[in-house]
């Protein structure tokens, strides 16, 4: 704006320029954010790149973000060498079972707290809420002893049960069912449906969005669980993919197998990355209702 502006049409030009300036600045800011986001994601790109690079090249250079002479040999190594497929399967079983039972038990308990008036509710609900304050990682020693006393370590149920006991799902489902208007259930009741039937045919379908969010959130947390599987599943065959992958990182000098190691990292992340791409919205919703108590 170097020229003096006095006449009306010229004023308009300055306004347009100011507008263009603002637009320009906004574009610059977006470009900056874009670069920042790309830098942010580099470590993950690097893992993918290394996993696709032959190990003999990695012995010379590990700093390429695009794989040099890409190969899948690292991934065939994942399948043929070591226990990674077994750990992957273990994680699938434990995570699947945990998620399924968390959904069923949380929905049932949440329904009872939200929709039924019964003796003992004033005691039971605060008792469940109190559990929200028990930090997940603090009580692994007594839990370990309980399973050791009945010799149940290195089993799938030992891995899953403490996770299912989490009260967060009940809290979320209680809040959800409380918000459903009475008329919905009233209609089913007038038709003579039992509680159980109303729950399964009317309430559960309505709860699908909340259940999806809870499912994704539970799946991510369980898949990534580390401390409890570390103490409970001590036989190599019973490792989860998370503890198994951690056990492979013990000796660091193995840069010779860096590609194979990174391929295992990719395999361990793949289910969650796929879920994330498909259900990003639900996961994010799970996080905000799960931690903020809002949706």
């Amino acid at each position: 704006m170097t020229t003096a502006t006095t006449t009306p049409p010229r004023t308009q030009t300055t306004e347009e320029r100011a507008h263009r300036n603002r637009k320009m600045r906004s574009r610059l800011f977006m470009a900056f954010l874009f670069v920042a986001a790309i830098i942010w994601i580099i470590p993950m790109v690097w893992m993918f790149s290394l996993s696709l690079t032959p190990n003999n090249i990695l012995q010379l250079d590990t700093t390429n973000l695009l794989p040099q002479s890409p190969t899948l040999e690292n991934f065939s190594d994942v399948i043929s060498v070591g226990l990674t497929p077994r750990w992957f399967l273990n994680s699938m079983i434990v995570t699947g079972v945990t998620t399924l039972f968390t959904l069923i038990l949380s929905a049932m308990a949440g329904y009872a707290f939200a929709r039924i008036d019964f003796k003992g509710k004033k005691l039971a609900y605060p008792l469940v809420l109190a559990g929200l304050m028990v930090p997940k990682e603090a009580m692994f020693v007594p839990l370990f002893l309980m399973f050791a006393e009945v010799e149940q370590h290195n089993t799938f149920h030992a891995l899953a049960l403490p996770r299912i006991a989490a009260p967060l799902g009940v809290f979320i489902m209680t809040q959800f069912f409380t918000a459903i208007p009475n008329e919905v259930e009233e209609a089913a009741r007038v038709d003579g449906a039992t509680r159980w039937k109303t729950f399964t045919t009317v309430m559960l379908p309505m709860a699908a969005p909340a259940l999806t969010a809870l499912a994704i959130f539970t799946f991510v947390l369980t898949w990534n669980d580390f401390l409890w599987p570390l103490v409970s599943a001590t036989q190599r065959e019973m490792f989860t993919i998370t503890t198994g992958l951690a056990s492979l990182q013990g000796n660091f000098a193995q840069a010779t197998e860096l590609g194979a190691l990174m391929a295992r990292g990719v395999v361990a992340s793949l289910p969650l990355l796929i879920l994330f791409v498909i259900f990003q919205r639900q996961l994010i919703r799970g996080i905000s209702i799960g931690s903020g108590g809002k949706g």
Binding site: P43, M47, F226, A246, Q249, G265, A268, S269, L272
Partner: peptide
């Protein structure tokens, strides 16, 4: 947001 879905073992690996 993407790094949040990685497990701690993948995080440390990278």
């Amino acid at each position: 947001f993407a790094p949040y879905v990685l497990s701690v073992a993948v995080l440390t690996l990278i």
